Computed example of a mutant assay.
Amino acid sequence: MIDHLDHLVLTTSRPAACIDFYTRVLGMQLERFVGGTPPVERQALKFGHQKINLHVQGAEFEPKAHLPVPGALDLCFIAAVPLDAAIARLAACGWPVVEGPVERTGATGKIRSVYVRDPDLNLIEISERL
Rank of each mutant, 00 (worst) to 15 (best):
L83H: 03
L5P: 03
S113I: 11
T108E: 14
P70R: 09
R104G: 06
F21D: 02
R89Q: 15
V25Q: 02
L5D: 04
P82Y: 00
V40I: 12
E128F: 05
I52S: 00
L10C: 06
E103G: 08
L67Y: 14
T12P: 04
G35L: 08
F33S: 11
T11M: 06
D84G: 04
F33M: 08
H49E: 11
A107R: 14
P70C: 06
I52G: 00
K64A: 12
A107G: 12
W95N: 01
A79I: 00
G35M: 05
I52N: 00
M1N: 11
V97W: 01
P70D: 07
V56Q: 10
P38Y: 02
R89H: 12
A86E: 11
P15D: 05
H49F: 10
A88P: 01
E31I: 12
R89L: 07
L130W: 08
P63Y: 10
I124A: 07
K46M: 07
R129I: 07
D6R: 11
N122K: 05
A17M: 05
L30C: 03
R14N: 09
N122R: 07
A17E: 15
A17G: 03
D74V: 08
L67P: 01
I87M: 12
G27Y: 05
D6G: 13
L67W: 12
E103P: 04
V81I: 12
C76Q: 10
G100D: 07
K51F: 14
G48V: 00
L26D: 01
V114P: 09
D120A: 11
L30K: 05
V102T: 13
Y22F: 11
V40S: 15
R104L: 13
A16H: 09
A17T: 02
A44K: 01
D3C: 09
T12A: 04
L75A: 03
K110Q: 15
P15C: 02
C93G: 05
E60F: 07
H66S: 13
Y22H: 05
T11Q: 02
F47T: 02
E31W: 13
L45F: 03
H55N: 15
P82E: 00
R42Y: 03
E60R: 06
K46W: 10
P38Q: 01
T23P: 00
L123P: 01
L45S: 01
F21L: 03
F21M: 02
D3F: 11
E41S: 10
G109A: 06
R117V: 09
G100I: 05
Y115Q: 08
E62G: 06
I19G: 00
E60Y: 07
H49L: 10
A107K: 14
H49C: 10
A72K: 14
K51S: 12
F33V: 03
F61V: 13
R24W: 04
L10R: 07
T11S: 07
E128Y: 04
H4D: 13
S113E: 14
L130K: 10
G48T: 00
H7P: 07
F61K: 09
V40T: 14
A85S: 11
Q29E: 15
L73A: 15
P101K: 05
G71V: 08
I52Q: 02
Q57W: 10
A65F: 13
H66D: 13
I126F: 08
D120Y: 11
F77I: 01
D74K: 08
A72D: 15
L5C: 13
R104E: 11
S113R: 11
V102N: 04
T11F: 04
I78N: 09
L67E: 14
P101L: 05
